[in-house]
Design a protein around this nucleic acid. Structure first.
Lengths: 316, 316
DNA sequence: ACCACGGATGCTCAGGTGAGCAACCTAGAC
DNA sequence: GTCTAGGTTGCTCACCTGAGCATCCGTGGT
């Protein structure tokens, strides 16, 4: 009987959703009362046989967003749907788009926006709409100018976002990581650098991404670290980096010595920020995303469906 | 504007389908009238952004079935959904189940049912429900006893189906293909074989599957043909076989000489049958399915979603 | 044989929703 | 400036649908 009912509920669902017949008509076809049909349909839904997906690059998963807000202490969460996505690139592009959208809608509009740099942030900058705000100044919060492969990408990111909001960009004229601690101290003490760091520390909102801890990291790519150094960090528990600083799954600095040579905003400053938007997408970044959210390094997370589920601990 | 509307329709769809809010509530959230929301929703549906799938082993694709009936001359078509299917085996199992279901519901109940043999048909026999009919006699319509690897599978298929309908099974005591034409003529002339062939020719319904033309064919497996012979048939245009006879994409016999040595029902007899049910599933059988349906070799097709679309010519 | 009980069934009724229609903008032609 | 055609908007109304409720039925206990 339960078996018959299950089969019937499937037949009813086919007629209802595929052929869009009315429950009454289905009743006639299957020789049931329309109330029975309604109950079968409800049963089919409850059993999870009916899957409704919104297939669109801009589609979001509100239910996952809600769960994220509730389970973690996030102020807000944006989760893009991965329905119909085939490549990781597409997923990252969708997420970048969503981050750009979120930035445009951010209220109050930040007077100063602190940003990091990287592939993700650059893509966000491209998706931001012209005139998304009026007079937002953008300041880089971690070092890294001009060493990376396509020189100027980091600068372009900040400039583009600022320009599209009729604001000015302030670049941080320093490498991301210095080889010697005293060099780092010296450069931080330099007036031009210190001013930018202070500006960054006082930003009204932050937008940053994260890197996974492996040889594909942007820091390796840019020549600040070697693949071996990253492997060593992983051995010490690193799951990835944000603003150039490697953290473990609890959000703690993995290598204080290395961190001491890293120029940019302190994690504690991010942790105490009113608005810190992390944009993290892709299957390789589940661990770092979990660490960032779990240790309160951001107040807003923009991510993809799978990463969001990983953060929630819903994956196997 | 069109862009804004598209985005709005996605937002509306999220709230409607994921959060199941009412159109009125959505109107309040998005600052729209409820009619506008209704139109956005309709637009989202029309644009194909809303995908509703019924995820269940017994789910069918009624819309494809209808198109098949309309576009081809089929009396009936059963198309199982491939939503959530990962392996070809699962797809074939679902299709076999559907064929068994169809057989049970076939009206008028056939007094004599002619069947072929093979992996697919065997699986159908397992899925047929005990007592699916009362007093249906089953007769094999093509040769092939006991030569195949697991001897007796062909016989078991017929016996099982007959037994479950409280009927008797009549086996065709002959190889599928003979090496010499005169041996074939002699065996056909033998009274015990001729009687079965006549019985098969007079069956009130037929149920058969199809094989693809490659080295994985059941006929190769059973030792009736070598892989080289099949390759030669393919060179001549063969796309697969039904009841042991290889046909090209137009449904014509590929090799009349070989066909002359094949024991079993003639294709013309199938073509003129009132009820001929073909069960064909799996990605490797798209071509043969198209040939069978296109040349009127069956009146009913039981298949999977992808194969059905291939038959309709919807694939690239 | 009788009764109590849980689950299924059919119904009422209050919303929710889509089709169809009139009013209204808007943009271009003259 | 005026007019017209096409598209959009807000609305009515009839229909569809889900929640809640009374009833029925079969089962197991006494």
């Amino acid at each position: 009987m339960a078996d018959t009912d299950e089969l019937l509920s499937i037949r009813a669902a086919e007629l209802y959703y595929e052929e869009n017949k009315t429950q009454d008509e289905i009743g006639t076809v299957l020789r049931l009362t329309r109330w029975k049909v309604g109950r079968l349909l409800a049963q089919a839904k409850a059993s999870g046989f009916i899957r409704i997906e919104i297939v669109h690059p801009r589609a979001r998963r509100l239910s996952i967003e809600r769960r994220l807000r509730e389970k973690t202490g996030l102020t807000d969460a944006i989760v893009v749907s991965s329905a119909g996505v085939t490549s990781d690139e597409e997923l990252q592009s969708r997420t970048a788009q969503a981050a750009a959208d979120y930035l445009s809608g951010l209220r109050p509009v930040p007077r100063t926006l602190g940003i990091s740099w990287g592939r993700t942030l650059h893509e966000v900058s491209l998706h931001v709409a012209q005139g998304w705000a009026n007079g937002v100044n953008v300041v880089q919060i971690n070092g890294g100018v001009s060493l990376n492969r396509r020189a100027g990408t980091a600068a372009a990111t900040a400039v583009t976002i600022a320009h599209k909001a009729s604001g000015a960009a302030t670049l941080l004229p320093s490498p991301a990581i210095l080889e010697r601690l005293d060099t780092k101290n010296a450069i931080e003490a330099d007036r031009s650098v210190a001013a930018v760091l202070n500006l960054g520390a006082a930003a009204s909102a932050y937008l940053f991404s994260a890197g996974q801890a492996d040889q594909n990291s942007a820091l390796v790519d840019s020549g600040y670290l070697t693949a071996e150094q990253v492997a060593e960090l992983v051995r010490k528990g690193a799951v990835g980096d944000i603003v150039g600083r490697y953290i473990d799954s609890n959000g703690n600095i993995v290598d204080p010595e290395l961190d001491g040579r890293t120029v940019g905003i302190q994690l504690e400053q991010l942790r105490h920020a009113k608005t810190a938007v992390a944009v993290i997408a892709g299957s390789s970044k589940h661990a770092i995303a979990r660490a960032v959210v779990g240790s309160g390094l951001c107040t807003v997370l923009v991510t993809d469906e799978e990463t969001a589920l990983a953060v929630l601990g819903d994956d196997s």
